[in-house]
Amino acid sequence: MTSEALMAPPAAPGLFRRLAAGRVFPVLAIVAAIIVIWLAGAIWLNAPQIEDAYQRAGQPLDFATLVHEGWNAKRPVLPSPQQVVTDLWNSLTLSPTSKRSLVYHATITGSAALSGFALGSLLGIVLAIAIVHVRRLDLSLMPWVITSQTIPILAIAPMIVVVLGNLGLTGLIPKAIISMYLCFFPVTIGLVKGLRSPDPLQMDLMRTYSASSRQVLTKLRWPAALPYLFAGLKVAIAISLVGAIVGELPTGAQAGLGSRLLAGSYFGQTVQIWSALFVASFLGTALVALVGLAEWMVRRSMGGRLT
């Protein structure tokens, strides 16, 4: 590959080549391809029911009508992108307190995810610091934390909701608890790795300064662990949202993105499912971006190199 690059003459790149070499254009091209496939798929998947309807009505069906009907079906198998966008626009421009506004549902799910994330991260940080400092915890607890990563913990979610419901706890708290226990594992594992990342030479230097273990923690281990911590936090906030959504499924919760998904699937409201899914995706991306922003601010305040 290197030799080929060396031999190639430095030709002046055309506009298309410069676009293709950029960062944005390839992504846009793939997104455009996905939308085209989606548009075609909406016609193809909705065609049988439309053909059926026209046949029963005894009306002829030409291609233009098929396309039009396929993109605007009442109960589509696959709603067209414009239907989803319209539904998103309608539900996002409603007053945020309305029960049909997706902002309202996203706020409910997001607040559960965020409070679970805060609790879980705190627990994860405390646990990681304890594991690094107490050898017995490292030997006894750490193997279980790692093993717990291999089991589908999310399966417990319905039970937590129901059990806490029996105790009179409903609404935000059960969902936050599910998010919490999903969150703390990646934070703990990442932070333990990070707190152990300082070079032995640096640890030795702290020892020659006769630093206490608290000083070693605050002045060496913690700053060194921050990149690992933020990597864990990004994973954690994404699955805390999944936890909050799944926590809304089993009990038929009244509000929240999970309940919108469930209601949509019960009543065959495909457009509603898709727009709830899109809002959930936006929410997840925004939450991860929030952690990324926090990381950027922390690194800048620490004078780290920004990449």
Binding site: V77, G264, I273, L277, A280, G284, L287
Partner: peptide
């Protein structure tokens, strides 16, 4: 990786 992809489940069940 930031998207709660499991939410696609109702659509898949429908399809």
């Amino acid at each position: 990786s930031a998207i709660p992809i499991v939410g696609i489940a109702p659509i898949m069940v429908m399809w």
